[in-house]
Design a protein around this nucleic acid. Structure first.
Lengths: 147, 147
DNA sequence: CGATATTATATTGTGCACAATATATCAGGG
DNA sequence: CCCTGATATATTGTGCACAATATAATATCG
């Protein structure tokens, strides 16, 4: 059944490439004491937290993950001292996530992770930009799909 | 820090696209009683198991997963009656995985899953072929990287 | 104002991923 | 034949993902 051949499946290529990418990040992130999903949360906070904290829902929507994944992730980051969590005074339903000093300081350490990865994969920067736009288009197409 | 912007990261695009793809498969695979990784195992077996069974190591290498993931996956497929597992008579170290009648019959039911997905994403077939070759190249590049 | 619906987060349960380790079998050299 | 190392699979422990449900706070409508 030709249509079911594993290597013809876009889905498997995405799945394999994504896992492989995570594996390449692992040794670099180990030095920062972060897992890969924790690193993604920190990317969001470094970009969006301006001292006033961001709601849990904001982290969820940026990463397209639900609270069942994000809440325990944030708790582990809190245990490790990278973030703090406080209920918003305005709306008691909302929990705001803050960077601690340590969490903020980690950004400098993480600054050259993307370059190190680029170097490790020996990719031309323009090749990366090409794949980035291809993947952005693919992701848009997938997100437009019903389901 | 521009280099750390979430949406610039190839890694996040892969991660998000892969999860989104899995989400699109879920309702279709629910009808077959399979999870997405279980579906991938079945793809390997439908393609490579010719009645004589395939070693666990073969499934691992095709899917690039280790035994810590694959062994429990195969046990769940066995519980659900899709596969059988027997130690090889020649080499008692290897466990061979066989399709059951039910497992073999499931291939016909799965035959139109790829087409349904194509339809759901409203993608031109040539667009898919394009992304497939792009992702094959990206995966090769990632696998060539040390680490 | 009070009942109802909505929103934000948390919890529970199942199934991956993967590092690290364990166990059992086999292969080769002395 | 025994010892040593290699090979194949399984087990353990941690951390995601996500569906389903629970809980609490807020908004809305009659």
């Amino acid at each position: 059944m030709e249509s079911l051949r594993l290597d013809n499946q876009l889905c498997f290529l995405l799945y394999a490439a994504s896992r492989r990418m995570t594996q390449l990040y692992r040794p670099l992130l180990d030095e920062l004491g972060l897992t890969y999903p924790q690193y993604l949360v920190m990317l969001v906070l470094w970009e969006d937290e301006r001292g006033e904290g961001v709601p849990v829902s904001h982290v969820c929507s940026r990463l397209k993950l639900d609270t069942g994944t994000v809440t325990p992730l944030l708790k582990r980051l809190e245990e490790h001292g990278q973030v703090a969590r406080r209920r918003s005074s305005g709306d008691e339903r909302v929990v705001r996530v803050y960077l601690t000093e340590a969490g903020r300081a980690l950004e400098a350490q993480a600054a050259d992770v993307p370059a190190q990865l680029l170097c490790q994969t020996r990719s031309e920067p323009e090749r990366i930009l090409h794949w980035r736009s291809e993947l952005q288009a693919l992701l848009r197409q997938l997100e437009a799909a019903s389901g």
